[in-house]
């Protein structure tokens, strides 16, 4: 089972690289879908089957479809070279991020070590258990997200509709 984690971890990283470095938005979107799918498999391995399915259904199956549709609709093509002077952030950003990555890696390594297994007593992560927790301890965030979704619907209509 562990080997699957490493396989899909590598898949995720390669696909993420492809998200960042592809010049055609559709390829980036497809790579992102691969990342999402690989992460869904990893969630399965980590004992979160429900979240894995939600990830595929909502993230890969709905959110990314929206991305692909918008890309198709706007016919977003190849990204050309930057027409403007090289931005400051583009030169400073990546080295900073690399430093951040190394730093973070070292700290995580120190804290949890090479072998600190990511395991607790096996949990019941079935949809029923998640639902129970959701509707008992997290009922407020759950209800409040409905306002969030309402705002999103409202916003999509307000911003994208040609004539109200």
């Amino acid at each position: 089972m562990e080997i699957l984690f490493y396989i899909f971890g590598v898949v995720a990283i390669v696909a993420a690289l492809s998200v960042v470095f592809q010049r055609t938005p559709v390829y980036s979107a497809l790579s992102l879908i691969v990342v999402l799918a690989a992460l869904a498999v990893i969630y399965l391995l980590l004992g979160a089957p429900f979240i894995a399915m939600v990830q595929v259904i909502v993230y890969a199956g709905a959110i990314m479809v929206l991305f692909v549709l918008v890309i198709m609709l706007l016919n977003a093509g190849h990204e050309g070279p930057s027409a403007h002077r090289a931005k400051f952030a583009r030169w400073v950003g990546p080295p900073l991020l690399l430093a951040f990555l190394v730093e973070f890696g070292v700290i995580v390594w120190k804290q949890y070590g090479l072998t600190g297994a990511a395991s607790a007593p096996a949990l019941d992560a079935s949809p029923a258990a998640i639902g129970r927790l959701l509707f008992k301890s997290y009922i407020l965030p759950f209800e409040v997200t409905s306002i969030l979704i309402l705002v999103a619907v409202l916003g999509a209509v307000v911003l994208a509709k040609k004539q109200l």
Binding site: G93, G105, G113
Partner: peptide, 30 residues
């Protein structure tokens, strides 16, 4: 079992890649 540090490293790598992409990409959708 899979060590926690490996999972976190994967997470950090993805996060950094995303942040790097945010800075270097020019297409709004990307």
């Amino acid at each position: 079992m899979i060590p926690l540090s490996h999972i976190l490293l994967l997470s950090v790598i993805l996060f950094t890649l995303g942040a790097a992409g945010f800075i270097i990409r020019r297409n709004v959708i990307t």
